[in-house]
Design a protein around this nucleic acid. Structure first.
Lengths: 220, 220
DNA sequence: CCGACGTTTCGGCGCGGGCCGAAGCGTCCG
DNA sequence: CGGACGCTTCGGCCCGCGCCGAAACGTCGG
């Protein structure tokens, strides 16, 4: 037996820094066009096009053509989970250099989306709040009363795993992922409790959000 | 920002099928010598030596020199977890070809170690048994009475995460990993309840093991 | 219908890296 | 002490692949 060829193929897709940068950008959970990604990773459009084709064929990305645009996004939560695990292992990139980059990375540290759930200090605040309320355990499993609490917020269990620990890159502590984390994140956006900062992944709690969280028994 | 270079570096280490095969072999949790791995992956010793150096420098493997031998093993549970996640995503290799290979892979399907815990049908049997006993929840979190049950078997909580779901490659269902899974596996080996088949990763329940499991309330 | 634009295909360049064999070094054992 | 053995280092080969620019195609808007 030799084995592990399938693993090597997936790894090869992520072993190129341009493709890895694409995936990192797509971790915001939104769809990007080919040119946006090319600009972001500083490569020619033709190069980006080839990379995207390979990532799609490898099952990491899905595309969604619209007119002359080619939108791509992560193929699902399982891809986000894969990227999270690998990033948690590899550690974040060092060196945010320059004033602009520094303030941007500070905003990301305060709060951001991690595919479909909240991360950063905001994500940790949510987690500790849920822990105090008894919605989740220390290991981020949903408690029986916690499930009721979630269902009052419109949560419906599905085939997807309810909760999952996702190691926070900046805080170095796990935060809440999985279906429950995604649902809460979605509810917060729908109610205007959280808002994206510009067009980045960074997220902030609005004044309405601070009040809403207090009413739920959470603390920002 | 470009980002994700660290991830790309780790991915590059696993993107080569020879290095991936090394890691796959080491997933049995034991230490292998350089030549054993070279033979296993069908490359020259010189080639293997270079690969090992890179994997060690990358933090995936640790070495342990003993006389003229160079033993290597996975650097820890976090590496096993990384490999599991990637394998779960990539899917197992197809094609076990030949009679010998087929019977070997059937033995692996019946029971094997997955780094430091049980996997295969045996691992799933353990999981469903623990579920029936109320030791773990559906999502593989340890229940409070379950923790007591484990401590009666000599388990001591540590810094390591108590329980974790690990997707079983052959059964396509999660089984118990983490500190609890590792402890149970260790206890079973110590008591002679499980035994390795030859020098492979495959594991079988001994007659003593069947009785022991029954006394604990588990079913094989 | 024409020009701008996003994307794709193709050819070609250059580098990185996986592989081997030969040679050398340290260890073990008779 | 000498030969066998496990491992490493080095040189060299070659393939794969990431990159670009040029050219072509389809879409959109005026």
């Amino acid at each position: 037996m030799v084995g592990m060829e399938a693993l090597a193929q997936v790894a090869a897709l992520l072993a190129d820094k341009t493709r890895a940068a694409f995936c990192g950008a797509l971790l915001d959970g939104r769809a990007w066009t080919a040119t946006e990604l090319a600009t972001h990773a500083r490569v020619a459009p033709s190069t980006a096009s080839e990379h995207l084709t390979r990532l799609i064929e490898g099952g990491l990305l899905v595309e969604h053509r619209q007119g002359r645009h080619r939108y791509v996004s992560l193929a699902g939560p399982h891809v986000a989970e894969l990227l999270e695990t690998m990033t948690a292992f590899a550690g974040p990139d060092p060196k945010p250099r320059g004033l602009r980059a520094t303030s941007a990375s500070e905003a990301m540290a305060r709060g951001r989306t991690c595919y479909d759930h909240l991360a950063g200090k905001l994500g940790i605040a949510l987690k500790t709040g849920l822990l105090d309320l008894g919605v989740v355990t220390d290991e981020l499993a949903i408690t029986p009363p916690g499930l009721v609490w979630l269902e009052e917020l419109g949560f419906e269990p599905s085939k997807r795993q309810v909760s999952r620990a996702c190691l926070d890159w900046t805080e170095r502590v796990p935060h809440l992922a999985g279906a429950a984390g995604a649902h809460l994140c979605q509810v917060f956006f729908e109610r205007g409790w959280t808002k994206r900062i510009g067009t980045t992944r960074a997220v902030a709690l609005t004044p309405a959000g601070e009040q809403g969280w207090r009413e739920l028994g959470l603390t920002a």
